[in-house]
Design a protein around this nucleic acid. Structure first.
Lengths: 243, 243
DNA sequence: GGCATCCACTTGATCGGACGAGTGGTTGAC
DNA sequence: GTCAACCACTCGTCCGATCAAGTGGATGCC
C-alpha cells in the first residue's frame, strides 16, 4: 500500500480478491456472497466500485446476481471453447522448424475444392506451398497452403526458399492483409495417392481432412490450407459448455 | 416515450442506438465516436450511464476505447466460435424423430475407449442406447450413447422403449444430473464391422469418429456418445476469429 | 526550425447519494 | 390458521461531481 508502484484499479483488485476466495473455497459454489454493502465496508470503497467488480465477475461467469436476493457463487468458469485449431497453426507455423520439410513451393493449378473457396475458376493458377511435418521422425501431417495470385504478388510466398516465419505473419508484414476469420471444414476420407507418398501411407488409409480458409475483414478469402492428418496419428479435441 | 410500457434501461438503449448507427454506416468502421460529453448531451443522461454503455460495446468488440484519444468503431463483432456440435445434438435429439431407428437399448459391456472416459474398468457393464439416423432414406449416422449404471439407475435409459425427449433432458428431469461441459475427440478411422452393417457401408469406408463425453460440474463423466459419421456424407464446420 | 510549455479535450477511476424494485421474514388484524 | 401489511435487506439503475492521466494542437521562447 505504501509504495507508489503500479497498482491495478480498485475494482480489478476486488475482482481478483473474490476470484481468489472462490478458487480456494472461502466462498463455496452455490453460497451467497457477502452483500454489496458488506463488501463496501470490507474493501473500503464506494458501492459503485464494488458493483462494478461484481458485474465483471457476473459477466465472466464466476457469480450470478439475483435481484432482491443476493449474489451467488456459480463456479470457476472454464474456457468457453477449447479446441485444436489445425487451420490456424498451419498459417502460423514457420517452415524453418526442425521437423518440417518443404515438398513443393511455387505455382500450380488450384484443384476444384480449393478454387471454390478461393472464389476463382477451377484450374486457375495459384501459389502453393506444401510441407510435411514429422513427429518423432515419422511423417505425420501434410499441409498444403494455397494463395490467390493477387494476394501472393509482392511477397516471398511464390519463392522456393524456406520462409522463416509463419505465412500469416509474412503476409501481414509485407502487405496490408489482415486476416479476420478462419473457417475450417473437417471430413474423413481416404488418403490420396499424393498423400500416401508424402506421408508414407498405404492405400486405403483413412485421413482426417481439414480445409481451412482465411478470410479478411471484407469477406474475401486470402488463403486456404488443405491439411491431411492420418487417422491413427491424430485426434482433435474440442470442449464447450453444455448449456 | 409517453407510454409507460416496459422500457429497457437507459444504458441499454444507448448501446442499441450506437449499434444501430454502426450497422447502418452512420458511424463507419475506424471513425471516432462522438465524445462522452457529446453523447451525454445527445442522450440527456449522466456521464456514468454513457460510459457504461460504451464499456459494454467495448467488451462486446463493437468499439475500442483509447485513453486520451476517444472511442473508435471496430466493426460488427462476429460470433466468436461457430461449429457443428455433433456431441451436443446426440444428447439432445429425441429418439422419436421420424428419421431415427433404435438399434439396441439395454445393458452391455463398455468397450475400452468408452470405459476409459467413463472412468470404469474395461468391460464393466453400462447402459447403452444405439440408434441410426437416416437422411433422405439412407442411413447416415450411427450414435451410441453410454451411461454409467449409477447415472442411469432410476431413469428410463435402461428400458427398451423409445424415449421421446433427449437423453440430457430426461436425465435432468428425473435426476439432479446437471451437465456442465462436453468434450469431443474427433478422428478419422475405418468403419467397424458393426458400423458397416448398421450404416450399409462397404469394408474400408472411412468414417469420422466423434467421442463426446459429458461431464457434470464436479468433473465426473455422466455419459459418452460414440458417433460414426461416414466420411462422404458428413462435413463438420468450425469458424473462429483469426486473432 | 526546434523545442518546451501550456491548454483544451479526451477517457479512466472513484465516490456517495438517490430512488426503484424484488425477496423473505415478522407482525398483526381478522 | 389465513392473509395482508409492513419492513429490513437485497440488487438495478442513474446521477453529477472530482481527480487523474493520456493526446494533440497552439503558443511562444530560443
Amino acid at each position: 500500500m505504501s509504495n507508489l508502484e503500479f497498482a491495478p484499479p480498485k475494482y480489478a483488485q476486488i475482482v481478483q480478491a473474490i476470484q481468489a476466495r472462490i478458487e480456494d473455497g472461502t466462498y463455496p459454489v452455490g453460497q451467497m456472497l457477502p452483500s454489496e454493502s458488506r463488501l463496501v465496508r470490507e474493501f473500503g470503497s464506494g458501492r459503485s466500485t464494488v458493483v462494478r467488480a461484481l458485474q465483471i465477475l457476473s459477466m465472466h461467469g464466476w457469480i450470478e446476481r439475483e435481484h432482491g436476493r443476493g449474489s451467488f457463487v456459480k463456479g470457476i468458469p472454464a474456457q468457453s471453447n477449447e479446441r485444436s485449431r489445425a487451420g490456424a497453426s498451419a498459417f502460423d507455423a514457420p517452415e524453418s522448424a526442425a521437423d518440417t520439410a518443404i515438398v513443393h513451393a511455387g505455382r500450380a493449378n488450384a484443384p476444384a475444392a480449393v478454387a471454390e473457396v478461393l472464389g476463382v475458376p477451377q484450374g486457375s493458377p495459384a501459389i502453393v506451398r506444401q510441407r510435411v511435418i514429422s513427429e518423432e521422425g515419422a511423417p505425420s501431417e501434410l499441409v498444403t497452403l494455397w494463395f490467390p495470385l493477387d494476394v501472393a504478388s509482392g511477397t516471398d510466398l511464390g519463392q522456393t526458399e524456406v520462409i522463416a516465419i509463419g505465412a500469416r505473419e509474412h503476409l501481414q508484414a509485407v502487405k496490408q492483409v489482415r486476416p479476420a476469420r478462419i473457417v475450417e471444414r473437417l471430413s474423413a476420407r481416404l488418403a490420396t495417392p499424393d498423400e500416401q507418398e508424402a506421408l508414407h501411407l498405404e492405400a486405403g488409409t483413412p485421413v482426417l481432412g481439414v480445409l481451412a480458409t482465411v478470410f479478411d475483414a471484407s469477406g474475401d478469402a486470402v488463403a486456404v490450407a488443405d491439411i491431411a492428418l492420418p487417422g491413427d496419428l491424430h485426434e482433435l479435441e474440442d470442449s464447450y459448455p453444455a448449456t
